[in-house]
Design a protein around this nucleic acid. Structure first.
Lengths: 208, 208
DNA sequence: CCGGATCCGGGTTGATACTG
DNA sequence: CAGTATCAACCCGGATCCGG
């Protein structure tokens, strides 16, 4: 990318990650850890293969990613630091997630939404396990424990709540944009004690 | 901009602010409040006039900015929400600010750097006034009071410390990348009790 | 001077085909 | 699997021009 030529931190940041597709590549690496070329291509529907190769080269020479064993790509420690701006952007764009339309979806992106909303520790958070089954993806378990929320792969052993349905419905409910009733009307099935979901307590602005 | 067509909050955010120059326009509006077209053009050295007009149209139709009285452009409440991701990106890019080279500089960007590093309240922060005189700009006063740091226009009445010199030296010192000695070797003059600067206490990760 | 609009050359992106 | 090659379409940058 052409540099903005401005002695300003934001402009310098955009010199590195401002190109088209670049930040989405970092998103995939944040979500999934070290990835192979084909994993990235699959997690970035719509990218042209030459652009992916170009961006990976640029990111590596900028020091954001590095090549690991077996040709895997991974973020450097500095690259991991893009965590904060990326999730901040995701939270900002929450209102744009109302309609899915015909946009592509990958189940791993649900993890992104959960991190954006429940990141950090909240002592008042209730312990619980929510099984999440989004159409077209493998099941995952949202685990709230010791004040923190995680999303792990695989079905839950004994979930308190089970959520299943289309991506936009499940995402709207987990993202706090849809009430349980509204989510149901979008095709989401809620099993178990739905009222417990309120105990997840989304972040208010406190990280760490 | 062409949409990524992905049902992911980050991709949706980039659909809106991912175009070249767009986030820098928002930076100027965050720093200076409502701006006229010419103010923006001046704060964005290197932008082509047609691109500025295009971006302003796009941002308005997306709901990020709105036109006020006398043709001024201002952020909407949603647009103001870009504060967090923008300053997070600025903090991430701190290491890239080592060398100024021949990059353009505007004195108002110093404010951006101060916000990125000292944003939020810290009860252990010491009260003080630091006058900042960067070459080519009008003087400003960095005021630490009641745990918060602000940068206001104009010379200080009775500053505890006076900083003056070239942009990269002053920015390096305020940004924590240069020691006082290193900043002096880059042409920064430090008047008053330089040791007091340590009492500013940069943010550790706690907002609000 | 302010606030753009128009035009054009060159660079970037996107889609597809191809290769070790 | 992991890219490279090619080429058309689009976007960006720079210059110029125009109405108030």
């Amino acid at each position: 990318m052409r540099s903005y030529g401005q002695y300003c931190a934001l402009a310098k940041a955009l010199d590195v990650i401002g190109d088209r597709w670049t930040l989405l590549i970092v998103r995939e690496l944040l979500l999934r850890g070290a990835c192979r070329y084909t994993d990235l291509k699959n997690g970035l529907p719509g990218i042209a293969t030459n652009l992916l190769a170009d961006r990976l080269r640029d990111l590596e020479s900028a020091g954001v990613i590095e090549r690991r064993d077996e040709g895997r790509y991974a973020l450097t420690p500095w690259g991991e630091g893009l965590h904060e701006p990326i999730y901040a952007l995701g939270r900002w764009a929450g209102p744009l997630m109302q309609e899915r339309g015909d946009a592509a979806f990958r189940p791993q992106w649900l993890r992104h939404m959960v991190i954006a909303r429940f990141e950090g520790s909240d002592p008042q958070r209730r312990d619980m396990v929510v099984e999440v089954r989004v159409e077209g993806g493998e099941p995952a378990a949202l685990v709230s424990s010791a004040g923190r929320v995680h999303l792990v792969r695989g079905a839950a052993a004994s979930p308190d709540v089970v959520l299943s349905g289309p991506p936009d419905g499940v995402a709207g409910l987990l993202g706090g944009r849809l009430s349980i009733a509204a989510a149901k009307s979008r095709g989401v099935k809620v099993g178990g004690d739905a009222a417990r979901l309120a105990g997840l307590r989304p972040r208010t602005g406190l990280p760490a």
